[in-house]
């Protein structure tokens, strides 16, 4: 596996180059579908950077996404655009570091619901602060970015997410993280600084998610806390990553593409029965793909390898 690793950045860059000219060729419908796919791809992959190997399921995606979006809304007029995005990333990183340091004692479902509560707390506080200080809840986003610009920025973030994930996977940090996922106590006894590892990767993941939020903000032109901090987003990202397979770098992508397209198709064709059909699809996935899309692919590969071993190809 490690031998083939340099293929990853090359593949990512080639794919990005191939996807880059698409908005120039496609109409608005496909363009908006692609923006959705890229957004979920970046979010789900960034989520899985931390939650995949450690198995700490985080529902704080919406919190960091909202922090990014609100940073753009607040600073979009005051600062030049190239400074707004780093500011949003920094805001996400700082909050993530503070949260990470305070939540280390939690595990399992307590961590899950804690992160959910955190997202809701931030949403309530932003709502309150806006109502108290600004007089109104919600604001317009005045940033000069075209829909195509959003597409390219998201594509760039996707590349960044995959490269960061690839780098983490090869680094000491990645080994430490996987050790924690296997057995946290054993990892600590092996000399892994579990606290620093977890906080570092949690912050990296949150920074990337905030960046996506900052880029997506202009798409709405008007945002309020209910949009920016929508808790449904956390669940969507979770479901997509789990469907694809959170343990592999490209796993979440395999869940994002079919689900994002499916959401769009069902919504367009069966607006009334959308919920029911979506629910049936979920149940189907759980019963038919018990280990996610990645599991299915690995199963297929294993079968192939087995077949090859039992029927060796004649040496030509």
């Amino acid at each position: 596996m490690r031998r083939r690793d340099p293929a990853v950045p090359i593949a990512v860059l080639v794919a990005a180059l191939a996807l880059a000219p698409l908005p120039l060729l496609l109409g608005p419908f496909w363009q908006s579908l692609l923006v959705n796919v890229l957004m979920y791809a970046a979010l789900a992959t960034a989520w899985a950077l931390f939650s995949g190997p450690t198995r700490y399921v985080s529902l704080a995606t919406a919190a960091f996404f909202g922090i990014g979006a609100y940073t753009t809304a607040f600073l979009g007029e005051a600062l030049p655009l190239p400074l707004v995005y780093p500011a949003a990333a920094l805001a996400g990183a700082v909050v993530a570091a503070v949260v990470g340091l305070s939540t280390l004692r939690l595990s399992g479902v307590y961590f899950v619901i804690f992160t959910f509560g955190l997202a809701e707390l931030i949403r309530q506080l932003v709502t309150y602060a806006e109502a108290r200080l600004g007089g109104t809840v919600g604001r317009f986003v005045f940033v000069d970015v075209t829909p195509r610009g959003i597409y390219w920025l998201l594509l760039a973030v996707c590349v960044l997410v995959f490269l960061v994930g690839w780098w983490i996977g090869r680094s000491r940090l990645g080994w430490a993280l996987r050790a924690i996922g296997d057995d946290e106590i054993a990892a600590r006894h092996c000399g892994v600084d579990t606290t620093r590892t977890k906080v570092a990767v949690f912050a990296i993941s949150a920074t990337l998610i905030s960046l996506v939020g900052a880029i997506m903000a202009p798409r709405w032109t008007y945002i309020d806390p209910a949009i920016a901090f929508n808790p449904i987003l956390s669940f969507q990202v979770l479901i997509m990553a789990l469907l694809g397979g959170a343990g592999r770098l490209f796993g979440p992508l395999l869940g994002v593409v079919p689900l994002a397209v499916l959401f769009e198709l069902l919504q367009a064709n069966f607006p009334n029965a959308f919920s029911v059909l979506l629910g049936l699809v979920f149940l189907g996935v759980v019963y038919l793909l018990p280990r996610g899309v990645v599991g299915l692919i690995e199963q297929g590969r294993g079968a192939l390898r087995l077949a090859r071993r039992t029927h060796p190809r004649p040496a030509a």
Binding site: L238, A273, S275, V276, L278, G279, V285
Partner: peptide, 17 residues
């Protein structure tokens, strides 16, 4: 989580209908 998430949409969808 995945299965009951699906169930959520089914019950909600039926109520909406």
């Amino acid at each position: 989580i995945l299965a009951t998430f699906g169930l959520l949409f089914i019950v909600q969808g039926v109520l909406l209908l």
